[in-house]
Amino acid sequence: MAEPPVGSGAPITVRVAAVRNTLQPTERRVADLIVSEPELVVELTAQQVADRVGVARSSVVRASQSLGYRGYPQLRMALAGELGAHDSFDHGEGAIGRLRTVMDRTARALNNSTSLLDVDELEGAIDLIARARRVFVVANGLSASVASNLATRLTSIGRSAEIVPDAVSQQIAARQLTPDDVCVVVSGTGTNEFSLRTAAAAVSAGANVIAITSFQKSDLTGLAHRVLVVAPASFRDELEHYSRVAQAAFVEALVDLVAEVFADRAQHARGLVLEILSDNLGDTIS
């Protein structure tokens, strides 16, 4: 349904993370080399890149264009700039130094997490969540904690949201939604089978489906009415550590945007939350 374009301001690693699953096998070889050995790629010509991964030069050009550049020279220049930005974060050796370096790079990467968002998709999703009769939040696997936090945070601003942990129960609940309801599906890859079945059940029921994902094109985006592409903090984190830090930060900001629609209602709900927190924390504070 919705397929937002590659963000023009997105770094190369973010672009690769968002579209890798849609690339042709030869283009994917080029993209993987860019991610795994960026310092090498920036020194190579298009032909040298092609020779290194065993593809034709035309595949390097097509891969560059699939990532949103006019050609390989433009990609190479952008990569050089990205590497320069990375070099600015180095707090030295030792546990504290390495920790600070990772935290700084993560903070920079989080600034890039919104680079693939489409404004119309975002505004449409906010409107759907704000005016829906019911909001049903769905996730399985590694995205479950993000979905749980989204449902809790929405409820805390007066926008009641439901979440069901069991995968089969999710599908049963989704099938009972109506065209006045919204099903928000959180899935990093957009390929979780249980989440896809629930999204399909929601579509069959006539409900609007909003996808919060890290890839621009997947089975989930094909089902969704609104697609919110949240770039992972880094491509390597997504592959090696299955990081959901970018999605976690995004849902916090999304809830604030929904709260702006509610205004007084959200303020009243937050006041009630503070009262409850005060009552429960009072005896533990010395």
Rank of each mutant, 00 (worst) to 15 (best):
V168W: 15
E27S: 09
L44K: 06
G190L: 05
G81Q: 02
R265Q: 12
V185I: 04
L281S: 14
G7K: 00
D181S: 05
V255R: 09
K217F: 00
P179Q: 02
R244P: 00
V6W: 04
D219S: 11
G68S: 06
D166H: 07
D180Y: 09
R76Q: 13
A10Q: 02
Y72Q: 06
A2K: 04
E123S: 12
A200Y: 04
R134W: 03
A263Q: 13
I172N: 14
V230T: 02
E260R: 05
L220A: 06
R70E: 15
S187M: 03
L75R: 06
D118A: 01
R28P: 09
S243N: 00
R226H: 02
R57T: 12
L177P: 01
I12R: 10
P5S: 13
S148V: 01
P4W: 00
S243Q: 04
D219N: 09
V273R: 15
P232F: 03
A109N: 07
E240P: 04
L177K: 11
I96D: 13
S204T: 12
V16N: 04
I34W: 01
A167Q: 14
V227Y: 02
E121T: 04
L277Y: 13
N208V: 12
G84Q: 12
I12M: 10
E27K: 11
R236E: 12
M1H: 08
V55M: 00
R270C: 00
R57G: 11
L150A: 04
Q216I: 14
L228G: 01
F194S: 15
L116R: 02
G81F: 00
L281H: 14
A199V: 05
G71R: 00
C183D: 05
R197S: 13
Q74R: 14
A10R: 08
I276V: 15
Q24F: 10
M1K: 08
G81R: 10
S113I: 02
A269C: 09
E43H: 09
D51E: 05
I34A: 07
T189A: 03
N280R: 15
A46R: 03
A78I: 04
A17D: 07
P73M: 11
D256H: 07
S204Q: 14
A202S: 09
V49Q: 09
S204R: 14
G282L: 12
S204L: 07
A18C: 02
A18K: 03
V229K: 09
R28L: 09
N112I: 01
G141H: 03
A246Y: 05
L44S: 06
V137K: 06
A85F: 07
E252S: 07
A211P: 07
